[in-house]
């Protein structure tokens, strides 16, 4: 089967530093793929390259949306990448703090809606309908994520775990077929992590593919279909959770981290 995301020999240099070194990775439809590695290994940089925030030095980024032709992501602006159906969250939460929870999700609907200045000022029926749909769709997503009762709260007032979930909700609002999550469990307590685990599986069951950066080994081993391990920008291992847990190179890279524990 053809992968929906096919990254070939991705290389990214920052001045003299090679943050990514000929990294290849594939994600297939409906899979949860984890990208793990020590701090500074280049995982976030990998996301930034795919989503157009950084321009990769070398390599190909190929995206095959379901039922569509393969498209090269290289050189696309971040908003165009999102339009292709690839949505992401950020390691350091980047919500719109002074907007309400609902509005945060409504922003996600932006790229799937059309009304312009004329519509904004004169509010013809089409615009009204669209606006109502935006609100309704956003609310539905919030319900699914379990944040509906906080809809009118400012994003900055949410507890940490809820903020991370809101980031996922906002990403889902862009109608992606693939979701990139950058350390979604960071800073969560075990209970919140467990709920996140469920949430991610539900999203996958809705038909989305998920590429996940995560430090929480237990979470990763639990839910991933395949795992890629990077260190110093290079891929050191790939395979199923069982294979990875046994891989000596991985154990060495994590030196002391309780990988077998999971």
């Amino acid at each position: 089967m053809q992968p929906i995301l096919n990254v070939q020999n991705l290389t990214m240099d920052f001045g003299g530093i090679r943050a990514l070194d000929h990294l290849s990775l594939q994600v297939h439809s409906g899979e949860i793929v984890a990208l793990i590695g020590p701090n500074g290994a280049g995982k976030t940089t990998f996301f930034n390259c795919i989503t157009g925030i950084y321009k990769p030095t070398k390599g190909d980024l190929l995206l095959t949306p379901p039922g569509k032709k393969t498209k090269k992501l290289n050189g696309l602006k971040p908003n165009k990448v999102t339009e292709q159906g690839l949505a992401r969250t950020f390691q350091n939460i980047r919500l719109f703090p002074n907007m309400t929870v609902l509005e945060n999700v409504m922003i996600g609907r932006h790229c799937r809606t059309r009304s312009k200045i004329f519509g904004a000022i004169f509010r013809p029926p089409g615009t009204r309908r669209e606006e109502e749909e935006i609100i309704q769709d956003s609310l539905d997503i919030l319900k699914k994520i379990g944040l509906a009762q906080l809809a009118n709260e400012y994003a900055k007032n949410l507890p940490y775990g809820a903020q991370r979930r809101l980031e996922i909700a906002r990403a889902l609002a862009t109608n992606p077929f693939m979701l990139l999550l950058d350390e979604p469990a960071a800073g969560m307590n075990p209970q919140e992590t467990l709920e996140l685990d469920e949430l991610i599986t539900t999203i996958r069951d809705d038909g989305l593919a998920i590429l996940l950066i995560e430090h929480d080994m237990k979470l990763v081993m639990n839910i991933s279909d395949s795992i890629f391990v990077v260190d110093y920008g290079k891929k050191i291992a790939e395979g199923s959770p069982e294979e990875i847990a046994k891989n000596p190179a991985v154990i060495k890279a994590y030196l002391g981290e309780e990988i077998e524990h999971a």
Partner: peptide
């Protein structure tokens, strides 16, 4: 809304399309 969001966080805005 997009204007306001842009004031809040440009990168997040772009990532939202």
């Amino acid at each position: 809304r997009a204007w306001f969001a842009l004031k809040e966080d440009e990168i997040a805005c772009q990532a939202m399309g």
